[in-house]
Design a binder for these strands. Structure first.
Lengths: 206, 206
DNA sequence: CCGCTAACTGAATATTGTTAAGTTTCTTGC
DNA sequence: GCAAGAAACTTAACAATATTCAGTTAGCGG
């Protein structure tokens, strides 16, 4: 009873990541047992150690795959809305929030990972999170070309913008949003507030 | 070998929380073994079950104690700087960031707790986090009395402000801050950017 | 057809949260 | 004072789960 029919090695690790993401969608913490992942993939737990050094390595792969998904979703948007920077910023941010609410546990794994998962990650250069920030920087720069946020350092402002959105998302997911609005709305309100501020920085057009 | 000398029940659960906070300071995840807490307190692991229903309940107590500490630190500041709202906002935010960097694991437990710890927490009314937000609302209102942020909804703006600071802190702690500055500086820059924006909303005094 | 390697399996081990049963100390009614 | 009962802890047992180990089988080069 070893070596089933014939299984592509790449296939099994790719499927392990996919199934883990799926299983994360069904629970609210990321302590998914390795045995559950193995069963979903169709093997036993120790078999996974042939593809990942340990559980943290598997979760790190999931973490990275999450950033790739998020990046690709946002990239698709930017192609559609290249012409209107402010609309792209709004819709891109909404897509970001939507992603977080659609995959709350995955989002938590991506941004508040247990340290074993995030460990030894290069300060941020080779990290998938960097490319997400890059998108924000591009969006801010595009807004500046239309006259918004004149004279501001785009990197600095993009990081502040991203921090606000990310903070609102995590607070809302944690149910720490104020008022009686639904949690999702609380995050949307933050976006609207930020966009109002940016819009107010436009040069007068009177 | 049971029932040592005489131990106040309140004393042991208070010390369990304190020792857990201390132990959290020595590690970067919150999987501190119950046995370690028990040894620090001076009892065995099962003894803790007389004071907390389970480990999650202990961590929830730690979570709440963290908010109380944060709240008290900020409250002390507000008494000293009541006269200058913008300075209070700046210093209070710096104290907030300082707290997060001084107690990174505790901060993560407070704001990204495993769901078992945060569970059944009233939407937010009876939560200690609400009082922290209250401080932000008061600070924003005080700023408005001095002419800043005219006409804005203070609750909405306070939440956005808090979200930005919280987001910057978590991103910085996760080493996802951009550029080559130290992580702490990255969070400070966000504060400065936010304060610049608020200052720019003041009515002209020319 | 033979050995060799890769890749997986079942069983074993270690850690850790939790429960069970027993024991000692304190308290309280008499 | 003292016996009965409750309180609060102990040690031992249990359960879940990550990880390791030794064995076994499938495919492949000769």
């Amino acid at each position: 009873m070893a070596r089933p029919k014939k299984e592509d090695a790449l296939d099994i690790s790719r499927r392990a990541v996919e199934e883990t993401i799926r299983l994360l969608g069904e629970r609210d913490d990321f302590d998914v047992p390795l045995a559950a992942v193995a069963e979903a993939v169709g093997c036993t737990a120790p078999a996974l150690y042939g593809h990942f050094r340990n559980k943290d390595a598997l979760l790190r792969a999931v973490h990275d795959a999450g950033f790739r998904r998020l990046y690709e979703e946002k990239l698709a948007l930017s192609k559609r809305l290249r012409s209107d920077p402010l609309a792209y910023l709004r819709e891109g941010t909404r897509a970001y929030v939507q992603f977080a609410f659609n995959n709350p546990t995955l989002y938590r794994l991506m941004f508040s990972p247990p340290p074993g998962v995030a460990a030894d990650q290069d300060p941020l250069s080779s990290d998938a999170g960097a490319s997400v920030l890059e998108l924000a920087v591009k969006a801010i720069k595009a807004c500046q070309k239309r006259g918004f946020l004149p004279g501001m350092d785009p990197n600095r402002y993009a990081f502040t913008y991203w921090a606000a959105v990310h903070g609102a998302v995590t607070l809302a997911l944690q149910n720490r949003a104020p008022g009686d609005e639904a949690r999702f709305d609380a995050a949307i309100v933050v976006i609207d507030t930020l966009l109002e501020i940016i819009a107010a920085t436009a040069p007068d057009r009177r």
